[in-house]
Amino acid sequence: MSIQHFRVALIPFFAAFCLPVFAHPETLVKVKDAEDQLGARVGYIELDLNSGKILESFRPEERFPMMSTFKVLLCGAVLSRVDAGQEQLGRRIHYSQNDLVEYSPVTEKHLTDGMTVRELCSAAITMSDNTAANLLLTTIGGPKELTAFLHNMGDHVTRLDRWEPELNEAIPNDERDTTMPAAMATTLRKLLTGELLTLASRQQLIDWMEADKVAGPLLRSALPAGWFIADKSGAGERGSRGIIAALGPDGKPSRIVVIYTTGSQATMDERNRQIAEIGASLIKHW
């Protein structure tokens, strides 16, 4: 067993022997301040990774656009098919120029040779490549099948209805392509620590998230040296922004954090800054 596999296998073990965790309302004060600064709703939840206990939450059962955070769930569904012998990570998928959609920095470079399922998941999570996500959605049967996968996990809230990039439209009061912070946090925890996926697939999923290259201005910008984070960000229309993450000190994750916002007129930089400040408060009061 590799060191990384050992780390993920012992996530519940280490967490069980940690000192009790206590909620700190100071972080919620910052979440509410972010709402004021952005002029928009902000949803927040913080779960203990081992027990699933909610440590703090704000608007945990209000719907927010998922945006690209759905790509972690998508690759979880792909990995479940791999575990069941219905898919192979090494299978190569070929596609054409007509398949390319807006923001496809990886797939646009491989029109000639195609990409493997493993490479597509890596591109979808680490670079948020939209064509990679659409190609992977095709392998599982489309958005409705991802929703069905989530329902089978016990998540009857999260739903995907459309493809990239239309799913980022974020129309107010439109339930399409949305989740709730509580539902997303619980589902992410199941994917990373539950028995739904094999140990190898859980490790692969967290490795992809740990290698995320496009979430630097968010929670990662607030992390002290030595902290662990595996995350996936999302951005959408109407001032929408979000991030889902597993993080913790001492090089291992111990909490799940989900943050979503929508309806702001603020710039992307300002949305990023507010999420980073929430992260800084979380870490300060850990």
Score class of each variant (00 low, 15 high):
residue 117 V to T: 04
residue 274 Q to K: 12
residue 36 D to N: 11
residue 203 Q to G: 05
residue 216 G to P: 09
residue 205 L to R: 08
residue 132 A to E: 08
residue 137 L to M: 15
residue 31 V to K: 11
residue 259 I to N: 12
residue 283 I to Y: 15
residue 149 F to T: 04
residue 249 P to K: 06
residue 87 E to G: 14
residue 31 V to T: 06
residue 32 K to I: 02
residue 179 T to H: 01
residue 87 E to N: 15
residue 82 V to C: 07
residue 99 D to A: 07
residue 93 I to A: 02
residue 149 F to Q: 06
residue 250 D to G: 07
residue 87 E to P: 14
residue 25 P to S: 03
residue 73 L to V: 15
residue 179 T to Y: 00
residue 100 L to S: 02
residue 210 E to P: 14
residue 178 T to N: 15
residue 41 R to W: 07
residue 163 W to S: 08
residue 201 S to V: 12
residue 261 T to D: 15
residue 275 I to P: 14
residue 102 E to K: 00
residue 255 R to M: 13
residue 220 R to M: 12
residue 58 F to E: 01
residue 285 H to A: 03
residue 252 K to M: 10
residue 60 P to M: 11
residue 135 L to N: 07
residue 157 V to P: 06
residue 210 E to S: 10
residue 129 D to Q: 00
residue 161 D to W: 05
residue 231 D to W: 06
residue 185 A to P: 05
residue 282 L to R: 07
residue 192 L to H: 11
residue 81 R to I: 02
residue 63 R to A: 03
residue 192 L to P: 14
residue 85 G to I: 15
residue 151 H to S: 08
residue 41 R to L: 11
residue 119 E to T: 15
residue 48 D to C: 03
residue 133 A to G: 04
residue 159 R to K: 00
residue 274 Q to W: 11
residue 242 G to H: 12
residue 222 A to D: 11
residue 135 L to Y: 07
residue 170 A to Y: 05
residue 276 A to F: 10
residue 51 S to H: 01
residue 106 V to A: 13
residue 166 E to R: 10
residue 37 Q to H: 11
residue 161 D to M: 12
residue 86 Q to C: 03
residue 77 A to F: 00
residue 52 G to V: 08
residue 47 L to H: 09
residue 265 Q to T: 11
residue 145 E to H: 05
residue 100 L to M: 02
residue 27 T to V: 01
residue 119 E to A: 14
residue 278 I to Q: 15
residue 37 Q to Y: 13
residue 222 A to R: 10
residue 214 V to H: 15
residue 213 K to T: 09
residue 215 A to K: 02
residue 112 T to Q: 04
residue 284 K to I: 03
residue 126 T to H: 05
residue 174 D to V: 03
residue 131 T to K: 04
residue 149 F to R: 07
residue 38 L to I: 00
residue 158 T to R: 01
residue 237 E to N: 11
residue 34 A to Q: 06
residue 262 T to S: 05
residue 172 P to T: 12
residue 27 T to G: 02
residue 134 N to K: 10
residue 74 L to R: 00
residue 199 L to P: 09
residue 143 P to A: 08
residue 155 D to E: 04
residue 90 G to M: 03
residue 102 E to S: 05
residue 182 A to C: 10
residue 51 S to Q: 01
residue 51 S to C: 01
residue 144 K to W: 13
residue 230 A to R: 10
residue 135 L to R: 03
residue 259 I to K: 02
residue 177 D to I: 12
residue 124 A to W: 02
residue 277 E to A: 12
residue 282 L to V: 06
residue 39 G to D: 10
residue 146 L to G: 14
residue 276 A to R: 09
residue 271 R to P: 06
residue 53 K to L: 08
residue 80 S to I: 01
residue 45 I to F: 00
residue 235 A to T: 04
residue 26 E to K: 15
residue 65 P to C: 04
residue 69 T to C: 03
residue 207 D to P: 05
residue 129 D to L: 00
residue 70 F to V: 03
residue 251 G to F: 10
residue 177 D to M: 03
residue 254 S to K: 11
residue 109 K to T: 15
residue 117 V to Y: 01
residue 225 A to N: 13
residue 231 D to V: 06
residue 129 D to K: 00
residue 186 T to F: 14
residue 247 L to W: 13
residue 241 R to T: 07
residue 225 A to C: 15
residue 146 L to F: 10
residue 218 L to I: 01
residue 215 A to R: 07
residue 255 R to I: 04
residue 255 R to F: 04
residue 35 E to T: 10
residue 180 M to Y: 11
residue 283 I to W: 08
residue 186 T to H: 08
residue 239 G to R: 11
residue 144 K to Q: 14
residue 154 G to V: 03
residue 253 P to H: 12
residue 140 I to K: 09
residue 170 A to S: 12
residue 68 S to N: 02
residue 178 T to F: 15
residue 215 A to S: 05
residue 248 G to A: 03
residue 152 N to R: 08
residue 223 L to V: 10
residue 134 N to C: 05
residue 68 S to H: 00
residue 74 L to Q: 07
residue 173 N to G: 11
residue 185 A to W: 04
residue 245 A to G: 10
residue 138 T to H: 09
residue 248 G to E: 13
